[in-house]
């Protein structure tokens, strides 16, 4: 059993004391290999007999259609975007993550609210306000931070899915082209993550290693948590 801890008041109308599951978060910038690792971790954990539930940003059935539409229209201002994403996050936390933890699942979360506030802050949100929105959020059991530098990220993007509008932060016009935009925007994100790594006790993992090396390191960290 893990004793439930919240960043602020949590959900006063629906208190959670403890839960038998584990909440493991993978954080890191775009293109750092999070989803690849989540797939591998899930297969491994299920083979070991753990019930696994995975979740990621913008997957709440309540907010997904609305958020997708808003993103298409580029109509979101910074605070509005913060709160819309917070709604998505809260919905998944209350209706998906916490029930799974209570049922003894190991929940693998592809990002947590850290990614959301990193993006909010770069777009001009007040860092303290952005953090305090998440007073309802559960403190994860483990936050694995996949970290790498810009040069490595660029290599991965060029040989992977290419550059796109959002991952280059083009909505805030850091630069007039996707490449420069990507470098500036992702560097800013890395700075924000590095700040939060200390504050929220992330466990850094060097993501410039091979997929297998990263996987082995993540496994090691998770084994420590579950045995």
């Amino acid at each position: 059993m893990t004793k439930a801890r919240f960043f602020g008041a949590g959900f006063p109308y629906n208190p959670l004391e403890e839960y038998p599951g584990k909440l493991v978060v993978l954080e890191g910038t775009d293109g750092v290999g999070r989803s690849t690792q989540i797939t591998l971790l899930r297969q491994w954990l299920e083979k070991e007999g753990f019930a696994v539930s995975d979740t990621g940003l913008r997957r709440s059935p309540m907010t997904q259609p609305g958020l997708d539409a808003a993103k298409l229209g580029h109509t979101l201002n910074s605070m509005t975007m913060s709160l819309f994403y917070a709604t998505d996050f809260a919905d998944r936390l209350e209706n998906q993550i916490i029930p799974a933890l209570k049922a003894g699942f190991l929940v693998l979360s592809d990002r947590y609210f850290y990614s959301i506030i990193a993006r909010d802050i770069i777009r001009g949100a007040d860092p303290e306000w952005a953090r305090k929105i998440y007073g309802f959020a559960l403190v994860p059991d483990l936050v694995l931070y996949l970290r790498t530098d810009i040069q490595h990220l660029v290599t991965r993007m060029v040989h992977g899915r290419g550059f796109n509008f959002w991952e280059s932060g083009m909505d805030i016009r850091f630069a007039d082209n996707l490449y420069d935009g990507f470098c500036l925007y992702q560097s800013n994100l890395i700075d924000q993550f590095d700040l939060m790594a200390k504050e929220f006790k992330f466990v850094p993992v060097d993501a410039s290693q091979s997929v297998n090396q990263v996987f082995e390191e993540l496994k090691k960290r998770i084994i420590k948590l579950i045995i």
Binding site: T87, D91, E94
Partner: peptide, 12 residues
């Protein structure tokens, strides 16, 4: 809606 998501969406 839960009380939290209700509150967040209205604030959005």
């Amino acid at each position: 809606f839960t009380p939290t998501t209700f509150s967040l969406l209205q604030c959005t």
